[in-house]
Amino acid sequence: MNFMESNTWRVKVGLAEMLKGGVIMDVTNVEQAQIAERAGACAVMALERVPADIRKEGGVARMASPKIIREIMAAVSIPVMAKVRIGHFAEAQVLEALEVDFIDESEVLTPADEPHHIWKHDFKVPFVCGARNLGEALRRIAEGAAMIRTKGEAGSGNIVEAVRHLRAITSEIQRLTTLRHEALVHAAKELQAPLELVEWVARNGRLPVPNFSAGGIATPADAALVMQLGAEAVFVGSGIFKSEDPELRARAIVKATTHYNNPKVVLEASEELGEAMKGLDVRQLEEKELLQTRGW
């Protein structure tokens, strides 16, 4: 794909590269942002309500108010991300004008456009998008996403969906690397993704952008699990500030993400943490309560 050679694209993916191995934390005010930075977060996601509260309180979830985002940008030196509704390119234009460092076109907010995601090549600021499988990931990359994250099930405190999505993406990538060329054409049709991107993945055995994990990470061991399954960094939404001791938990998840391959360190990180967020059994949720089915 031609866009992958452009300088704009390389600089967008470049910032995503810098976040690898790190933890990106949802924060709703300056105090939380400072706790996150002190705990070693490599970036923060500024939003008005964490997913668990969005789920509980209902109503339309929109882009956070520029005031909150601006205050957070002024309070920390690490990159600041913010979310827009799926397809809401005008919200994205506002965030770009505000100069946030990364935009998350997110299923956690109420979608603004059901069939259309944002054409992200129109922007200079990089985007991250959620995906449940390889086809979804490649469609988002074709539209210009510079980072992919699993959708998981946001605000659930339950890792099962993030694991499902990560395994789906990695096993589909693996399968592509074994296919003959004519079979890649068929795979592109089944994945509903551009053939050039399918060929790229088959040749390189990975996504052309960093692949992070989100949606249900609540403990240090959750972070170590998704990292061992191939995630390159983690997003933690409700898991930190809905727990008993956010600062301690934030530090512990950062530590476990760096040392994901070292169970002794993950054990250390897991001790004396207080209560994790309560969490939901995803199988008890009704179809209409799922966030991951937003977007396509």
Binding site: E17, M18, L19, K20, G21, G22, E37, R38, A39, G40, A41, C42, A43, S77, I78, P79, V254, K255, T258
Partner: peptide, 13 residues
């Protein structure tokens, strides 16, 4: 490359 504040904290820890 990465986030220097994150690296700093780890170098200490």
């Amino acid at each position: 490359g990465g986030e220097s504040t994150t690296h700093l904290k780890f170098l200490r820890e």
